[in-house]
Write a protein that binds this DNA or RNA. Structure first.
Lengths: 191, 191
DNA sequence: TGTCAACTTGACACGGTGTCAAGTTGATTC
DNA sequence: GAATCAACTTGACACCGTGTCAAGTTGACA
């Protein structure tokens, strides 16, 4: 990868983790990367695109796809649900900075809205796959449709929920993980 | 109440319900109220204060306090939990416009952040009271602390969750209400 | 007639994004 | 050694919404 581009993405990543993500300006990122603000526009069309690429950058650096993909190998639906929940729970703290920056832009920038929605759609596909595996095992709660089950767990896993529990309620990351797995099972499985 | 003030609040309310709340400008509200943009500042110091007062306005117009208070009268903890969940579920669609406007400001405006946090703190107090009632009845799930139970249900009830389920997943309001009550019970109660 | 409060019109500063234009610099190529 | 080219710099500026300031206008009431 282009070294300047890499410097910019690393700077964006670092700042979004360190500061209030909604308050990180493009000028701050440029300064952190050691270039001029205008040079950013030689590599990214606008703020939204920079955020998208930063998210992709983190994905590859942290091998996110591989981690999430691993849950596919689970033998049972229940096992798959657990694996997917823990993989996502481990992913969330990595991208929370970018995620919050996206959320801050949602209301003003259409591109940002779409980009974040895409990302959440990918998460939902994984949820749907886990639910399908549960249904195939006959483990899905009686009277619960696959769609509703998918919607529920997808909502449970959302970034705002993670933020509220870990940032506002003071839960540890481990506590959040346990809660997510257990809640998913309580809401989806027959007991 | 001062008639101009009332006109402004009604205009803000109407616009926040009708449009994308993050995109409603003060000028739009003024025009809708039939006054100049500057006249807004004769009644409210800034955007955040206008939103706060709009929320209070809706509260009194819809008798929100009374509705939420009614859940206190429940005889059992379980009944109280149900009543609080349904009361809040009925409240959410009323203030979703203002709520979204607040959420859009969270990242840029400290006043807005605090105002919304206050509101959510009030919701949490209600959650804690319901959890206490459950605990008094011995109905709280084994091994679940009151704080964790409160955090869980408080998070479940959040506006982002309502938005995701009803706006993105296409759930009906009734579907959301049923889900909230049932999920609260599944997560908090034994068995 | 005079006063006062509520409101209007119009101008402007501020901050962050994104654009435009005119350099500078260093490596490559003839 | 001169020309070229891409990457970058500096500096200016337009746009948008918020919030401020100043100078009118209007209508009620004394």
């Amino acid at each position: 990868m282009n070294p300047t581009r890499r410097k910019i993405l690393a700077a964006a990543w670092a700042l979004l983790e360190a500061e209030e993500p909604g308050k990180v300006r493009l000028g701050d990122i440029a300064k952190q990367a050691g270039i001029s603000r205008q040079a950013l526009y030689l590599h990214f069309a606008n703020r939204a695109e920079l955020l998208v690429e930063t998210a992709r950058f983190i994905d590859t650096e942290k091998n996110i796809d591989g981690r999430l993909e691993a849950s596919r190998k689970a033998s049972s639906g229940r096992e798959r649900l657990r694996a997917y929940c823990t993989a996502w729970a481990g992913y969330l703290p990595e991208i929370q900075g970018v995620g919050r920056a996206f959320m801050a832009m949602q209301h003003s920038d259409e591109d940002a809205r779409i980009a974040w929605a895409d990302r959440m759609a990918a998460l939902r596909h994984g949820c749907a796959a886990a639910v399908d595996a549960l249904a195939a095992d006959g483990d899905l709660r009686n009277g619960l449709s696959r769609k509703d089950a998918t919607d529920m767990i997808w909502t449970l896993m959302s970034l705002p929920n993670w933020l509220q529990l870990t940032q506002q309620c003071g839960w540890t990351q481990a506590g959040y993980e346990d809660w997510l797995v257990e809640s998913a099972e309580r809401l989806l499985l027959e007991r």
